[in-house]
Amino acid sequence: MALDFAFLLDFRWVLLKGLWTTLQFVTLALVIGLVWGFVLSLFRTSSNWVIYSLSTIYVEFFRGTPVLIQLFWIFFCLPLFLDVNLSDFTSVVIALSLYSGAITSESFRAALKSIESSQHDACIALGLPPTVRTLFVILPQAVLRAIPNLLSNVVSLFKESALVSAVGMADLMYVGQNIANNVARPVEILTAVALIYFAIGFPLTRAVSFVEARLLKVVKA
């Protein structure tokens, strides 16, 4: 069988539209997941037993189950429970935000825990009140330390987002599969789709290494 990539040019706008959709819901889910994840990480360091347990169960559940099942669950079960009609786009954003929040909270939690107790000692020796300690000493260091991990999460979520094609969301993957079915050329089209994912994902992974090397120099003083 001869490979022929030329026909792909006819589909470039459809593919780009799929990519645009992917980028939109991934970005939204990342931003919401970042905020939600930070709140969760605080919950998980809470001394309140109920808050601690609920948030821990939540995080472990979302980290320990397949994203695909989470997607199905939000798509088909959530509307029934809440008796609402959600658009596909909204459902995808909700599902991926809930998932990325769980992952993100772990990055923040690890960063919070990695701050040496001597930093707290220094704060007390300088007479810093607890709020100042948290806001000006602990939080900025936690965020800096979490950045490399957070960026890796971005790359993973971007790739895992291809799963939403399974619930009929017209993302890049879904568009690719559709074209493949129509023109009966799955090898070329799926290769092309992979290359598009790669073209976005690769610079992101490079950015992670770059930022990591730079930040570690500053943070590990």
Partner: peptide, 13 residues
Amino acid sequence: VGMVFQHYTLFPH
């Protein structure tokens, strides 16, 4: 009272 520690404990950020 002020204190200085063995490992500096400056704020790295």
